[in-house]
Computed example of a mutant assay.
Amino acid sequence: MMDSPNEVRDIFLNPGDFYFGGPDLRLRTLLGSCVSIVLWHPKKKIGGMSHYILPGRNNSANMQILEGKYGEEAFLLFLKEIKLTKLPISEFKAKIFGGSDMFSREEEDLKLESNFTNAKLVGQKNINFAKQILSDHSISVISENTGGSKARKIFFTVWDGEVWLETPETTK
């Protein structure tokens, strides 16, 4: 484990945000049904995090400006950054977090909206997308904490590749 840098840049990612950089970074976010992909290069101590809301757009023809709120576009942002490093993407390691089912049993019982079932599947669709895109690019997933029904706070320290996870206790 590498010692932390003398100065740390602490960056909070909101839904739809993406960040990639060097060993002076701590990236953090709060997830529900959204998913974060964390990519890290163990030798170069560089990496990044995405926080996407949905796997993709309904109309991919509008991808003139990449938006991190969609998984496919967040991954294109990763590819763009990795290309600048001139490192093979297969040397990066991945961790996946999020994809919770954030709907309570009471909401499920009510089923007030016809799209409720689809809304419940957002977290799982986000997880499936992350696993598929990483597999398609031969990136090893070395850790994951996905699914369930709780929010997650994650903290990624780029200097050592560690991701710290907190799951707030639910109060009833």
Results as ranks from 00 to 15, higher is better:
Met1Ser: 08
Met1Glu: 14
Met2Asp: 04
Met2Ile: 01
Asp3Ser: 07
Asp3Val: 05
Asp3Pro: 11
Ser4Ala: 14
Ser4Gln: 06
Pro5Phe: 08
Pro5Gln: 05
Pro5Gly: 11
Pro5Thr: 11
Asn6His: 05
Asn6Ser: 15
Glu7Asn: 14
Val8Thr: 15
Val8Asn: 10
Val8Leu: 14
Val8Glu: 14
Arg9Pro: 00
Asp10Ser: 09
Asp10Tyr: 12
Asp10Gln: 12
Ile11Val: 09
Ile11Asn: 03
Phe12Ala: 11
Phe12Arg: 03
Leu13His: 02
Leu13Ile: 07
Leu13Ala: 04
Asn14His: 10
Asn14Arg: 13
Asp17Thr: 07
Asp17Leu: 03
Asp17Cys: 08
Phe18Ala: 07
Phe18His: 13
Tyr19Met: 11
Tyr19Ala: 06
Phe20Glu: 11
Gly21Arg: 14
Gly21Ser: 10
Gly22Lys: 14
Gly22Ala: 08
Gly22Phe: 12
Gly22Leu: 15
Gly22Val: 00
Pro23Ser: 07
Asp24Met: 07
Asp24Thr: 12
Leu25Pro: 12
Arg26Ser: 15
Leu27Gln: 05
Leu27Tyr: 01
Leu27Trp: 00
Arg28Asp: 05
Thr29Ser: 07
Leu30Met: 07
Gly32Cys: 09
Gly32Pro: 09
Ser33Thr: 00
Cys34Thr: 01
Val35Gly: 00
Ser36Asn: 05
Ile37Val: 07
Leu39Asn: 03
Trp40Arg: 02
Trp40Lys: 01
Trp40Asn: 00
His41Trp: 03
His41Gln: 07
Pro42Gly: 08
Pro42Lys: 06
Pro42Gln: 00
Lys43Met: 12
Lys43Phe: 11
Lys43Thr: 13
Lys43Arg: 11
Lys44Asp: 04
Lys44Pro: 03
Lys44Ile: 09
Lys45His: 14
Lys45Ser: 01
Lys45Ile: 05
Lys45Arg: 04
Ile46Ala: 09
Gly47Tyr: 11
Gly48Trp: 02
Met49Glu: 03
